[in-house]
């Protein structure tokens, strides 16, 4: 079953303790790091923890997850692919 991006956005906000931002304000295709949501390397590690905690997905090599962390859309696709593999 495809993961809803709205659900994923809510989990990102919760796990990173982002203030003053709602899931609706995060665009599916906007970059998570750098110019978009402005996340940094610590946030990337926190997202790795979030994936294991919420979806049972373990990323042992951060390079493996790098393409998945481009946007909410790519992260949702990554979760879906790992769940069905």
């Amino acid at each position: 079953m495809a993961i809803a991006t709205s659900e994923l956005k809510a989990k990102i906000i919760e796990s990173l303790n982002l203030q003053d931002i709602t899931p609706e304000q995060i665009e599916d295709e906007a970059p998570l790091f750098g110019a978009g949501l402005g996340l940094d390397s610590i946030d990337a590690l926190e997202l790795v923890v979030m994936l294991e905690k919420n979806y049972g997905i373990v990323i042992k090599d951060i390079e493996e997850g790098r393409p998945a962390f481009k946007s909410v859309r790519t992260l949702a696709d990554f979760i879906e692919a790992r769940r069905s593999s």
Binding site: I42, E46, L51, K53
Partner: peptide, 12 residues
Amino acid sequence: DAVGGLSPTLFT
């Protein structure tokens, strides 16, 4: 003992 491990953010 948290699932997924300790918080990297908290560590900083």
